[in-house]
């Protein structure tokens, strides 16, 4: 058995507050193999984003284990988790989180600078990536000068530039038009197919989910293993049916 890109075992996350514990994730267990495109779906508040935070080491679980590329994040300190995230994870945020003062080109090159690598020597790669994503003309622009789709594509380029094997995408099309959303999903699929990246996508959109190899349903913090869908060739109807069965 090959080493999983992500190995999640009996994961719990409980938020305290107002004197009452609120379990967000309850015993979540799943594996993601290298090169796999996995989509996690679920209603609002089901714990999808919290799960992504735990998978990236941004947050610590209340119980359970997360192994990322063989590293046990659960027992790693904050600095170790940060370094693992830097080296292993490309993150695509729902709200882009581009640095407002940096140009698109500088934003894309940011992970390289963070890793202490030369941004200048990678400018050809940045341009190539921007060309692939259709934002080549916008490299000198500031984020506030971009459309939503352009911002998200810049965000994806930023996630891809470092060559990290795992892409974590949090509702990447949530703020985009249908056409822009489709372009973004095609790009993620291409990263998976052509570059062998592993993609974990969190979304509400059945249409986006059709791009995945596997769809997992998260309901009230629990993974519904029985409703897991496997591709290829998943249709929106398959996904709607699974969502209906899970009463989502």
């Amino acid at each position: 058995m090959t080493e999983a890109m992500l190995d999640v075992q009996d994961l719990y996350k409980i938020h305290g507050g107002s004197g009452e514990d609120h379990p967000v994730l309850r015993g979540v267990t799943f594996r993601v193999e290298p090169g796999e495109f996995v989509c996690i779906m679920g209603p609002s508040g089901s714990g999808k984003t919290t799960l992504l935070h735990l998978l990236s080491g941004l947050d610590e679980p209340s119980a359970g284990q997360v192994h990322l590329g063989g590293v046990d994040l659960t027992h790693a300190g904050e600095r170790r988790r940060t370094v693992v995230r830097r080296d292993q994870v490309g993150y695509v945020f729902q709200f882009f989180h581009l640095m407002p003062n940096l140009t698109v080109e500088e934003n894309i090159g940011l992970p390289l600078a963070i890793a202490g690598r030369s941004v200048k020597s990678q400018s050809g790669r940045i341009t190539e990536l921007a060309k692939t994503l259709g934002i080549e003309e916008r490299l000198g622009a500031l984020p506030h000068e971009l459309s939503g789709g352009e911002m998200q594509r810049a965000s994806i380029a930023r996630a891809l530039i470092g060559g990290q094997p795992l892409l974590l995408c949090d509702e990447p099309t949530g703020n985009l038009s249908q056409a822009a959303g489709r372009e973004v999903m095609e790009e993620l699929r291409r990263a998976c197919d052509d570059e062998g990246r592993t993609v974990v996508l969190v979304t509400h959109s059945p249409r986006d989910a059709t791009f995945a190899d596997r769809v997992l349903l998260l309901v009230d913090g629990e993974m519904r293993a029985e409703e897991e869908l496997r591709g290829p060739g998943l249709t929106e109807d398959d996904i709607h049916a699974a969502l209906n069965r899970a009463s989502i």
Binding site: S56, L58, Y91, F93, H97, L110, I114
Partner: peptide
């Protein structure tokens, strides 16, 4: 502060 959060999420250490 959002900038700081983003940098940290992208893998910047607190020192960086």
């Amino acid at each position: 502060v959002t900038e700081v959060g983003t940098l940290h999420a992208l893998g910047s250490t607190r020192g960086q």
